[in-house]
Simulated assay, not measured.
Amino acid sequence: MSDLKTRITEDVKTAMRAGDKPRLSVLRMLQAELKQREVVDAVELTEAVIHAAVEKMVKQRRDSESQFRNANRTDLADKEAAEIAVLLDYLPQQLSETEVAALIDQAIAETGAAGGKDMGKVMGWIKPKAQGRTDMGKLSGLIKAKLG
């Protein structure tokens, strides 16, 4: 069993003992997602698989949060933001804006990218280094702006 899966299981127990219902709810959803991947998809739960599941859940919540904010439903948007905060605990340390900018500059230099047509080369170079450590959609936009 992966260390991260063990940590999630222990955190569920801790949240139950503490009566922290919002945190417990998010952790149970995460466990359900992991069980889905493990049983239905027949995938071994490695750190990478767990990180991918967490990233998917964070992305879904960011999308929902954005839609709720646009609809002036701050109560629901705040709930999504709180869930994101819980989930981010299970991803590697996030990159700062400065680190992301430096990584983009390095990727462009290493790949010799000269314009928008080289977007795929840059993303291919940067993805393994940034996956799970930054919002990939936002990263793509930053790269596009830099190349454009």
Results as ranks from 00 to 15, higher is better:
M1K: 12
S2R: 07
D3H: 13
D3A: 13
T6H: 15
R7I: 01
I8V: 10
V12C: 11
T14L: 12
R17Y: 05
G19S: 09
L24V: 05
L27A: 03
L34V: 08
L34A: 02
E38S: 11
V40P: 00
D41C: 09
E44A: 15
L45Q: 05
T46G: 10
A52R: 05
A52G: 09
A53S: 14
E55C: 06
E55I: 03
V58S: 05
D75E: 12
K79S: 12
I84H: 02
A85F: 04
A85E: 13
V86M: 10
L87V: 07
L87S: 02
D89W: 05
D89R: 12
Y90A: 04
Q93W: 02
S96M: 11
T98V: 13
E99I: 04
A101G: 08
I104V: 15
Q106D: 14
A107G: 14
A107Q: 02
I108E: 08
A113P: 00
K117I: 13
D118S: 10
M119H: 09
M119R: 07
V122W: 00
I126Y: 00
I126T: 02
K127Q: 10
P128F: 04
A130C: 12
G132I: 02
D135S: 04
D135E: 12
K138P: 00
S140M: 07
S140Q: 09
A145I: 06
A145D: 11
G148L: 06
G148I: 04
